[in-house]
Structures are given as structure tokens and as C-alpha cells.
Design a protein around this nucleic acid. Structure first.
Lengths: 218, 218
DNA sequence: GTCTATAGCAGGATAGAC
DNA sequence: GTCTATCCTGCTATAGAC
């Protein structure tokens, strides 16, 4: 890349390519050479801009993952604030839509959940960041909302509410990080049409799972 | 290890330690040196017994993962065969119990699902094996059973049945491969008591999600 | 800020003694 | 079957020219 590109261009390209590669293959499976080649810059650029491969990884979470999580959370809140009052059903639907057809492009969604799944499988330094700054607070916020509107009040313990939300998130995560497997098993391509059907499925499944709606069919 | 150990001992130890390490860290993050140290044998043993690190990885699936999957599937069938007739509810419950309190030890369960999650996130040569030999046939078997007893018949399309089963599997997978994250978020240790509660939760959530049971509370 | 060149080390694999 | 010794490749990281 020529020096006439905007000054931060290299750093930004490195973050982009690094995120894509880390999401796809995992930290150890990606080499600095691979990243700098993809970013069309020199091998030494990673150490210049981020001082180490490991810190580049952390920076991907700080500068890309967390802001994106916040965008999703903001989309969720907005769609609820658009209503004057909301029901538990509204919360679940807003949640599913924010994560599955919210502000992200499809590729961003895939990356986002792949990185998340990898950190959940084997938490590294990045997981603490991710949990503290995004997951934990958002999880509590949603739990509070649902509790306030009557889900998870007695006789159902709050523990149950936690598991209900977790299970819904588990489904959202799964369909995003395991796209290859889903395609292989269902035999259907993971395209726009499939994703649309998924959103409906997940909303219905989660609502019923949480006991918020009578089964659609008996 | 002394030469007086049974002849296959080294090979078996290698498979055991390799599986544990691959499950915990992923293929690339584990070195042959790490495996042979854990197995208390010589560095060259991997190449002697398995010819390459990659083939050791595949062998872990062939000789450990697939047989274990079959044990789970067998436990599932047995618990249904014990009944003279079974309902859709029985199928879901048998499914959950086979995977969550079936024939595996807790550590085996963790390994099993970690390896599975890794292959689903980024399928390698092992995924094709795993899908063809275990997941795909079992998935079809369960779908057939549920369809036969009336789930997923019209007006609900069979596609919906597929997603219903997938989502249940997604939840089972999640709670096993993301134990650290679950513990971090819920604040509860992933112990025997927690697991018992999980089984009940997953059965209830999945049954309702599939529209098989009225919500337990309204 | 970007490059080349290279240090320094860890990785997988193999040859050959025992 | 198991070991030691070693090859060679690829890795991260850094020094220093431009």
C-alpha cells in the first residue's frame, strides 16, 4: 500500500484482516505473516502498530468486537423504546431480531459469533473483557426487563429466567458460529431466505420455551 | 514408561492425552511435545504410532469420538425401547437425558462437545467423518421418530421439525462446550447440582419450544 | 510509518541406535 | 517399540535503513 493512503489505513486494515482470520481459524492457527499478507502490508507492521500478535488479538476485541456488541444492544433497546409499553413477548422478539437481523452485515454477524464462541470454548484474556464490558451487563439488563414485566417471578425462581435467556442466546450463537455444520445437516444453503426462516423459528422456539406463548400447534 | 506395560499402552495413552488437549485448546494450539509429555512417552512416539500429528487427530475421532457418540445414541434408543409405546415427549426427554446424563462421565461429556463444537466452527477433515458416521444418521433417525409420532406433520413442514431438533442440540452443545462462560455469567459453579437443574431446564425448554407441551406456568 | 534482514526459538518430522 | 539426536521449516519479534 502506498504512503498516500490515510495514515491509519494500515492499522485499520490489520484489524479487519486479523479479525476475519482469527474468527475463521482461531488465534493459534493464524500467523502474523498471514495477517500482514491479507492486509497487504509488511510483516513488521503488526509489531509496530500493536507491539505483539497477542495484543493485536486483544485490540480486535477492544476496537471491533465490543463496539459491535454495543451496536446490537443499542438496536435492541431502540426497538423496544419505539413502543410505549412492551410485553415479555416483545422483549424476546426484539432480542432475536437485534442479533439476527440487526445492524450487522451477515459477514459481521458470522465473525462476531465465531469469535465469541471461540472465547467461550476456551476463555483467554479477551473473554474477561468481553464478559465484563458486554455480555454480563447486557444479560443483566435483559433479565431485569423480563423480570420487571413478570417473567421469572414466583413461583418460577430467577435462576430459571437466567437459564431461559442463556438458552435463547445459545441458539442464536449456534446458528451463527456453526453455519457450515447447519448447512451440512439440513442440506440447505445458509442464504438470506434460510436466515429469515431461522429468525421466525428462533422467536417461536424461544417464546414457547420460556412459557410465554401457547404452542402454535398442539 | 517401562517396557513391561501392555504393548498398546503407549498408543492408548497418546489417544487419551491427545483428545483431552485437542478438546481443551484446539488442534493448532497443541504441540506434539505437549502430547507426548502428558502421555509420558517419547516425542517420536506420535510419528511411530500415528505417522503424523494430523493423523493422530483424525484417529482421536475415529477411535474415541465416534464410539462415544454411538454409546450416547445407544442409550437413547434403549431408554425408548424400554417403553412399549412412546410419545413425542418421551423422545425429547430420552434425547436430553442420553446426552446430559447418559453413559458418559462428566469429563467425557465436556471433551466430546468441545471437540464437536470446534469441528462445527471450522470443519476440517474430521468433520466429514463425524457428520457422516454419527450426526447425520442420528439426526435423521430422531427426525423420523418424531415425524412418525406426529411431530412435524402438516401444517407444520418438515423443515420446522429439523430446526426444532437442531435447536435442542444447540442448547445441549452450548451448555457443555461453554461451561466456563456459563459459570461466569450465572455465577454458579458447573457442578453436579447445576447439571441436574440444567437437564430439567433443557427438557422443559425443548418440549415447549417444539410445541409439545403447554407452558408449565402462564 | 514502512520496509528489509535476521536473530532466536519452537514446531513437526525422521534416521538410526538400542 | 522406544529412545536420542538432529534436520529443517516456520514462527514471533526486533534492529536499523529509508
Amino acid at each position: 500500500m502506498s504512503k498516500t493512503d490515510s495514515p491509519k489505513a494500515t492499522r485499520e486494515r490489520l484489524l479487519n484482516e486479523a479479525e476475519a482470520l482469527f474468527a475463521e481459524k482461531g488465534y493459534e492457527a493464524v500467523s502474523v505473516r498471514e495477517i500482514t499478507t491479507a492486509a497487504e502490508c509488511n510483516l513488521a507492521a503488526v509489531n509496530y502498530h500493536f507491539s505483539s500478535k497477542w495484543n493485536l488479538y486483544l485490540e480486535v476485541f477492544r476496537e471491533r468486537w465490543i463496539p459491535r456488541a454495543r451496536r446490537i444492544h443499542a438496536a435492541f433497546r431502540e426497538s423496544l423504546n419505539a413502543k410505549e409499553a412492551f410485553s415479555p413477548t416483545d422483549v424476546v422478539e426484539a432480542l432475536a431480531r437485534a442479533f439476527l437481523e440487526g445492524p450487522l452485515t451477515d459477514e459481521e454477524r458470522s465473525r462476531h459469533h465465531q469469535l465469541m464462541a471461540r472465547e467461550m470454548a476456551k476463555p483467554s484474556g479477551a473473554f474477561e473483557l468481553l464478559a465484563r464490558e458486554a455480555m454480563q451487563p447486557f444479560f443483566m439488563e435483559v433479565a431485569g426487563m423480563l423480570h420487571q414485566v413478570g417473567v421469572g417471578s414466583s413461583p418460577a425462581p430467577k435462576d430459571d429466567l437466567f437459564l431461559n435467556i442463556l438458552s435463547m442466546m445459545a441458539i442464536v450463537l449456534f446458528y451463527n458460529f456453526a453455519r457450515n455444520a447447519v448447512t451440512r445437516i439440513t442440506g440447505k444453503p445458509y442464504d438470506e431466505a434460510f436466515r429469515k426462516g431461522l429468525v421466525e423459528h428462533i422467536i417461536r422456539y424461544s417464546l414457547s420455551g420460556m412459557g410465554l406463548q401457547a404452542p402454535a400447534r398442539s
